[in-house]
Design a protein around this nucleic acid. Structure first.
Length: 453
RNA sequence: GUGAUUGUAGCUCAGUUGGUUAGAGCACCAGAUUGUGGUUCUGGGGGUCGUGGGUUCGAACCCCAUCAGUCACCCCA
């Protein structure tokens, strides 16, 4: 028999891990609901053509494709062989693969909006908490199956949405006790920089390069820009742009003068100023002019969240996209959204030991099993506790005391209820608090009145 | 997709001029203790040394291939 295993980049989650993950999910879901977002779920798989071409060249390569069924059917084999040639040549072919696992939640959402745009009430605010899959090579903080928690608003140009989404980030990370910086920038400013540097077609090259500033340093960024065919004066302008620092206000003032007269850039700066000055907790919002973000559908303000005091990629990101549903034949529906990377948030919280101790609590009371008649009484008392919503267990078989104690201890059960022959005869229950070591004796009635809060 | 690194008991790891029967800690099981856990003591079970070849009288150790994990790049949550 083959050794049991699971695919690269996937994980099993044990009981304790699931409890901690649920704690994060509940926190996020609660805040989404507080801001009026409604839940949505979409299928794990989509038509391949729904996903292709939406994430850039690199993104497309990371989409998990699903092999069609029925390829061995004689009437399909000819087409399948032809299709295979296409696939090894780097193309897609419907005769071999026409479905794929979802790569993110935003594109499936756009597809959903395009399919249902007649019935939706706008602005439509939805949240979605589901796994996504990417065929990346796994490493720290990177998995092939991971959860995203997205909140998006479509059908509204208002910057109030950006303000609220920033507030959601702030609130969620405050609730989790996780210190973060929420960085924001505007694609319009990056577009303006590209224009000023003589080529809006170079925007992707420029943003990809400057996004790496804090990782590889100024010299390497300049080198990369050179290699991508920018002139010396163009690189010079970008160098000035990258040199901008100070408070949010100072940064925006400097950009304003650098991009003076550029209409797109002015608009982008105005939008950032609007959001920053809306009375949101500006101490967490940091303007980061080097922030670019890879997904190429963003057109306005973009967000990225980094955890402080820990080495980890971004734990959240998002931004405004002006015409996502246009890709699916429904033009003119603007949107803006954010995403939480639960798996990375989990890793960071684990590393910083931020999970509260009480996320583990499952069973509250363990009834010892000390005989047939004794366990029957224990079962009755246990049922009464369950009626009250107190999680209770009866040890599954007659066993030695220390075995039953050890079971309770390992499962983190706080109370042991002991009913042996003596207690049965006296119609009482001994209750031991395993945390304090204190043991008390109760009549059956008194036991029934305990709250175990 | 590119590059590096690791693979020995359930877990964490020792194990060199290649040499008997491959070790430790933790965990597990049993007993000391037939109704009071966490400590301690004693004993016990458990390993095709990732897999497949090769070199050698002899391989956990050297060589080749392969698989798997980890990390970095790319990209990203």
């Amino acid at each position: 028999m083959a050794k049991p295993g699971i695919p690269q980049g996937t994980r099993d989650f044990g009981p304790e891990t699931v409890r901690k993950r649920n704690y994060i999910f509940h926190t996020i879901r609660q805040v989404f609901e507080l801001y009026g977002f409604q839940p949505l779920e979409t299928p794990a798989m989509e038509h391949l053509e729904t996903l292709m071409g939406k994430y850039g060249e690199e993104g497309d390569k990371l989409i998990f494709k699903i092999l069609n069924n029925g390829l061995s059917d004689p009437k399909n084999t000819g087409k399948a062989r032809e299709a295979f040639e296409n696939v090894v040549a780097g193309k897609n072919d419907k005769n071999l693969t026409e479905r794929a696992l979802r790569y993110d939640l935003t594109i499936p959402f756009a597809r959903y909006v395009a399919m249902n745009h007649g019935q939706l009430t706008y602005p439509f605010k939805r949240y979605q908490i589901q796994p996504v899959w990417r065929a990346d090579r796994p490493q720290r903080g990177r998995y092939r199956e991971f959860y995203q928690c997205d909140a998006d608003v479509v059908g509204s140009h208002s910057l109030l949405n950006e303000v609220e989404l920033a507030a959601i980030y702030t609130r969620v990370f405050h609730c989790l006790g996780l210190p973060v910086s929420i960085r924001l920038n505007n694609r319009k400013i990056l577009a303006a920089l590209a224009e000023v540097c003589g080529g809006s077609d170079k925007m992707t090259d420029i943003t990809v390069a400057i996004d790496k500033l804090d990782k590889i340093g100024l010299e390497k960024v300049k080198e990369e820009l050179w290699q991508r065919g920018l002139s010396e004066s163009q690189v010079g302008t970008i160098e000035k742009y990258l040199a901008i620092e100070g408070t949010n206000e100072e940064k925006l003032a400097s950009v304003k003068s650098l991009l003076a007269g550029n209409e797109t850039g002015g608009k982008g700066i105005e939008e950032l100023e609007y959001v920053l000055n809306y009375g949101s907790p500006a101490n967490l919002l940091v303007v980061d002019l080097t922030l670019a973000r890879g997904l190429n559908y963003y057109t306005g303000i973009i967000f990225e969240v980094k955890a402080l005091n820990v080495q980890m990629g971004s734990i959240g990101g998002g931004g405004r996209y002006d015409d996502l549903t246009g890709l699916f034949g429904v033009p003119g529906v603007p949107g803006v959204g954010i995403s939480f990377g639960v798996d990375r948030i989990y890793d960071v919280m684990e590393e910083l030991r931020l999970f509260p101790a009480d996320v583990h609590t499952g069973t509250k009371v363990l009834f010892f099993n000390l005989g047939e008649a004794e366990s029957r009484l224990a079962f009755l008392l246990g049922q009464a506790l369950r009626e009250k919503g107190v999680a209770a267990e009866i040890y599954h078989e007659l066993a030695k005391f220390d075995k039953q104690f050890k079971y309770a201890e390992r499962k983190g059960i706080r109370y042991a209820a002991i009913i042996g022959p003596g207690e049965l005869a006296g119609q009482e229950v001994k209750l031991k608090d395993l945390q304090t070591g204190l043991q008390t004796t109760h009549s059956l009635q008194a036991f029934g009145e305990l709250s175990f809060a």
